[in-house]
Amino acid sequence: MKEFIALGIVLIGGIFMAFQYYLHIPLMKDLYNTFLDWGIVISVFALFIGIKSLLQRQIREIKEKKEHLIFPLTTIISFGVVIILWLIWGAKKDSPPVNFIYTTFQVPLQATIFSLLAFYITSASYRAFRAKNFSATILLITASIVIIGRIPLGDYLAKITIINVGKHSFSLLNFPQWVQWILNVPNVGVKRAFKFGITIGIILTSFKIIFGVEKNWLK
């Protein structure tokens, strides 16, 4: 019975959500916004489950006396400090302690991790650009063209290889133009093909959920 009610709500809600996008009826828009607000309220309750899970795991690690106790201890202390500060000064973005924690700790730490991406890209590219077979060789040549076209060397080569044929002049090694063609034609074409497949996949999976064929989310 519970499953039947849940599936009924999903069926009605799903069809409503799909059609409200195409039909500009004010009442439907209001209902849609109300449903979105409900989603926010539910996600707040879900956050408590997340906090419980996080703290349980950290406390378990301390109890089990694992090798690096500093990590669970730091997590618990940081969690407690931020909660206390928020309770005293309020959970506003512009409150001084919250702002201090955000700009002094969170932003630099996140920027550090993000900057690691450059090194990871380099090491991944080094592995990918080995001409092991025909496909890898094409990848290597294409990547080389894109790299040269994006650095000052590409512009320099394009300038020194300009030749004049009658009234027209063109560059023999116009790397920047080749890069634009690679990015605008084959790259966009393949990306669109992927997006096209993904979108249809999402639509059909949504239908499966709306009509109760896909029910694993009910568990």
């Binding site: 991944a124 590219s125 592995r127 990918a128 990306k191 992927f194 997006k195 497949g197 993904i198 249809i200 996949g201 999402i202 059909l204 999976t205």
Partner: peptide
């Protein structure tokens, strides 16, 4: 289904389900 991340997964992983294959 993240098109922008597919090249990274293809390079680093042994198998990759691309886009709609996931669904």
């Amino acid at each position: 289904d993240s098109v922008a991340q597919l090249p990274f997964f293809i390079v680093t992983c042994d198998f990759t389900l691309m886009g709609e294959e996931l669904f």
